[in-house]
Amino acid sequence: MVRKLVNVLVLIPVGIVLIVLSVANRQSVTLALNPFRPEDSMLSLTAPFFVYLFLAVILGMVIGSLATWFSQGKHRKRARTEAREAVKWHTEADKQKSRAEAIAAQAVVPVSK
């Protein structure tokens, strides 16, 4: 339900905006990578402007994802450590429980009248 709501309220308007930007920015633009000789054709790329817009958005998403991944590394490491510790303590609790049951079984003494 929430996923459908996100699709309707966020993704569809974003898609519409991207389509409008693509249609409005169809003219070719030259990206010159040589700042000293911009007319150099070896280090230049000509493409429609919306291609550069999409590449910028994709690059920003990748860089943002990587930054988030690396910044949350300490939290993932802590979660792994605590999960291992929880398993260790559950194993110890099971051992102690079985030990207590064994002791209780041995301690059962018949009651004499």
Rank of each mutant, 00 (worst) to 15 (best):
F49H: 00
V2D: 14
V10R: 03
G73Y: 07
L9T: 06
F49Y: 12
R80H: 07
I103P: 08
A56H: 10
E85Q: 13
E39H: 08
I103C: 11
R84D: 13
A47F: 11
A47D: 06
L18N: 08
V111D: 08
Q106Y: 15
F36S: 09
A105L: 10
Q27R: 06
F36D: 04
V108T: 07
L53M: 12
R84M: 14
I19F: 13
H90G: 09
D40I: 03
T68I: 15
A83V: 04
M61C: 11
A32V: 01
I12S: 00
S65N: 12
T46L: 04
M42F: 13
L5Y: 11
L33E: 01
R3K: 15
V57R: 12
P38E: 02
V29W: 09
V62T: 10
M1F: 14
G64R: 05
V29Q: 12
K74C: 10
L11G: 01
P13L: 07
L66P: 01
R84I: 13
I12A: 06
T46G: 02
Y52A: 06
A102S: 14
P13G: 01
M42C: 07
S98L: 14
L53S: 03
V57D: 00
V109K: 14
I63Y: 07
M61R: 06
P48E: 04
L43P: 03
F50V: 04
A32S: 08
S44M: 05
K97A: 02
E101H: 04
H90P: 07
I16L: 10
M42A: 15
I58N: 02
V111W: 06
R99P: 02
P13K: 04
W69M: 12
H75Q: 14
Q96F: 08
L18K: 02
Q27I: 10
